[in-house]
Amino acid sequence: MSVTHDEVRRIARLAELDVSDEVLPLLGEQMSRILEYVAQINAVPASEGVKPFVPGPDAVRFRADEVKPWPLAFGPAEFAPAFRDGFFLVPKLGQFEDADT
């Protein structure tokens, strides 16, 4: 299971992570080794009929439809890195500029 540099780049774009060219070879090699190691589970045959296991309650519990938000000791203005007139601010969308306006 060897991951190509192009694949690392594609995955990094999906994960919105900057990966510099210097770290690319080492990262590719480490990812390959991890993926190779975890791929050993495919050696176990006949798990097709097995239902996935997730711990926790068998069924989700519901919340009543009431306006009762969990408390917030202070508002977004206190923790947002950029906030103005009640809005969070981010740089313009760039490649996302197609968004509905």
């Binding site: 919105e16 992570l17 900057d18 981010v90 740089p91 313009k92 969308l93 760039g94 490649q95 996302f96």
Partner: peptide
């Protein structure tokens, strides 16, 4: 960051 993708990355 120039645009939001650059901010993310």
């Amino acid at each position: 960051s120039e645009d939001v993708r650059a901010l993310y990355r």
